[in-house]
Computed example of a mutant assay.
Amino acid sequence: MNEAADWAPDWAQAPAGWDWLAQDEDGRWFWYRTEPIAGFGGGVWRSNSRNQQYAGQGQSNPAWAESLCRRDQ
């Protein structure tokens, strides 16, 4: 198992009220305050810059569009 490829940010590190997490194709993870939209032309999730915050770097992910998850409510 490649642990680096499977790495994802820990929800304990998410800012309060930031209930979405997604990974861009280049491996960067971001927290989102509002649900982002997949930008297929660039391999990134899109949201107003005030509603996204860098969460960490993982391996590049060709299945990035499947990475969006919501914090358990």
Results as ranks from 00 to 15, higher is better:
1 M>L: 09
3 E>Q: 11
7 W>I: 05
8 A>R: 15
9 P>W: 01
10 D>G: 02
11 W>L: 04
12 A>W: 00
13 Q>A: 15
13 Q>E: 15
13 Q>V: 00
14 A>I: 02
14 A>E: 08
14 A>G: 11
15 P>H: 00
16 A>I: 05
19 D>P: 00
20 W>N: 03
21 L>Y: 01
21 L>F: 03
21 L>V: 00
23 Q>K: 15
23 Q>D: 02
24 D>M: 01
25 E>A: 14
26 D>C: 13
27 G>L: 03
27 G>R: 01
28 R>E: 15
31 W>S: 04
31 W>D: 03
31 W>N: 05
31 W>F: 13
32 Y>G: 03
32 Y>A: 02
33 R>T: 01
34 T>H: 09
34 T>I: 00
35 E>N: 04
35 E>D: 11
35 E>R: 15
36 P>D: 02
36 P>L: 07
37 I>Y: 02
37 I>R: 12
38 A>M: 03
38 A>T: 03
39 G>V: 07
40 F>S: 06
40 F>T: 10
41 G>T: 13
41 G>C: 10
42 G>N: 14
43 G>T: 11
44 V>F: 10
46 R>D: 12
46 R>Q: 12
46 R>P: 00
49 S>M: 04
49 S>K: 10
49 S>I: 09
50 R>T: 06
50 R>A: 14
50 R>G: 03
52 Q>A: 05
52 Q>Y: 03
52 Q>T: 09
53 Q>N: 06
54 Y>C: 03
55 A>Y: 04
55 A>H: 06
56 G>F: 02
56 G>L: 01
57 Q>H: 08
57 Q>E: 13
57 Q>T: 14
57 Q>Y: 02
57 Q>W: 07
58 G>I: 05
58 G>T: 08
59 Q>I: 02
59 Q>P: 00
59 Q>H: 10
60 S>A: 12
60 S>T: 08
61 N>P: 00
61 N>H: 12
62 P>A: 12
62 P>W: 07
62 P>Q: 13
63 A>M: 14
63 A>K: 14
64 W>Q: 10
65 A>W: 08
65 A>C: 07
66 E>T: 13
66 E>V: 04
66 E>F: 06
66 E>A: 14
66 E>P: 03
67 S>H: 11
69 C>R: 15
70 R>C: 11
71 R>L: 15
71 R>N: 05
72 D>A: 15
72 D>F: 09
73 Q>E: 13
73 Q>M: 06
